[in-house]
Write a protein that binds this DNA or RNA. Structure first.
Lengths: 118, 118
DNA sequence: CGGAATCCCTCCCGATACTG
DNA sequence: CAGTATCGGGAGGGATTCCG
């Protein structure tokens, strides 16, 4: 049976939920150019709390989109990296990022129109 | 100045937030094949409440992604339809839908592995 | 039929403090 | 440095009721 995105019990909807998560998208995009340390991610992604970053990374790890590598050293060093699966998603997310920046003016114009009229 | 997705004050992030909204994605996909009535949308999208559907449609309308057309008739009839801007986004979202269904088995397998190990 | 308005509650998320 | 643990506020969202 074909996965039905519109059925709330279908797993594909849960996959979409992960994609839809704001932090997941930003984290995956940040991992585009290769492995990153925890601290690097925290620094690059403005506004993310420690808690949400960790939680997001665990989620990505659980879904097989990223790997977590602990280097035995002092101070501790942990690297996160996209898996093949994660990279296959990256392509699509990069498209979304491009769309968001490309069409930002149109969206903002539409909002102004809507708000002033209403 | 180039829009910076990682800056929380940047408008592009707000655009991403709309994309990230679970109901928005489903509504846009449901509008793929042409105009739909309010009731049709409510029926096809499992689990959406009246309130969230209306709220989502208002949001899409505000951002210029969809139009709302009221037909003067009894009983009332309201059609929603994607704009050109909305259709340009549809392409990307359809890609996400395909990814979600295609890679669902891999994601579920990864989850099982993660959960049994932990 | 297609909403708007209200109540109400959950749980998401941020802030803070502590640890290996 | 890279987390975990805990607490509390606030927004998101469901259920219900009423309206044009």
């Amino acid at each position: 049976m074909k996965p039905n995105l519109y059925d709330r019990k279908c797993g594909s909807r849960q996959v979409l939920d992960r994609i839809g998560d704001r932090w997941s998208v930003l984290v995956v995009l940040t991992l585009a150019d290769g492995p990153r340390r925890y601290g690097e991610l925290a620094e690059r992604i403005d506004g993310v709390s420690q808690k949400m970053l960790t939680q997001t990374l665990r989620g990505l790890e659980r879904d097989g989109l990223a790997t977590r590598t602990v280097h035995a050293a002092v101070p501790p060093r942990v690297d996160y990296e996209l898996t093949d699966l994660g990279r296959s998603l990256l392509t699509l997310l990069a498209g979304l990022e491009a769309w968001a920046t490309d069409h930002l003016p149109e969206v903002e114009a539409a909002r102004d129109r809507y708000d002033t009229r209403a």
